[in-house]
Simulated scan of single mutants.
Amino acid sequence: MAPVVVYPPDAEGGRRVVARGRILGVAYNAMDVLDMLEEVGLEREHVRLDDTALIDWRGGGAWEWAPSGG
């Protein structure tokens, strides 16, 4: 299982980001995810958003930010 999970977009288009069970916050774009990962010690130069061993994108990949229906 990947240590980082990015959940599907909510009604506002935000996606909850969790790293090793710790909620980092809500991201509204891929840059927000990179910022959050940098805050926990991962250098953005070494993070590949398509690295499935690092990030489990649920409900769409790094470029899916449309609000969920409902």
Rank of each mutant, 00 (worst) to 15 (best):
V5L: 02
V5Q: 00
Y7W: 02
P8S: 05
A11K: 13
E12Y: 03
R15N: 08
R15H: 12
V17N: 00
V17A: 01
V18W: 04
G21A: 13
R22G: 02
R22Q: 12
I23Q: 13
I23C: 07
I23L: 09
I23A: 09
L24K: 03
L24Q: 08
L24R: 07
L24S: 06
G25Y: 01
G25A: 00
V26R: 15
V26H: 09
Y28T: 13
Y28E: 09
A30S: 15
D32G: 04
V33M: 02
M36R: 03
L37F: 07
E39F: 00
V40S: 08
V40W: 03
V40I: 15
L42N: 10
R44V: 07
E45I: 08
H46G: 11
R48M: 06
D51F: 06
T52L: 14
A53E: 12
A53H: 13
L54C: 14
L54Q: 12
L54R: 12
L54I: 15
D56H: 15
W57H: 02
R58C: 04
G59M: 12
G60A: 07
G60I: 01
G60Q: 03
G61M: 05
G61C: 15
G61F: 01
G61W: 01
E64Y: 15
P67T: 08
G70W: 10
G70C: 06
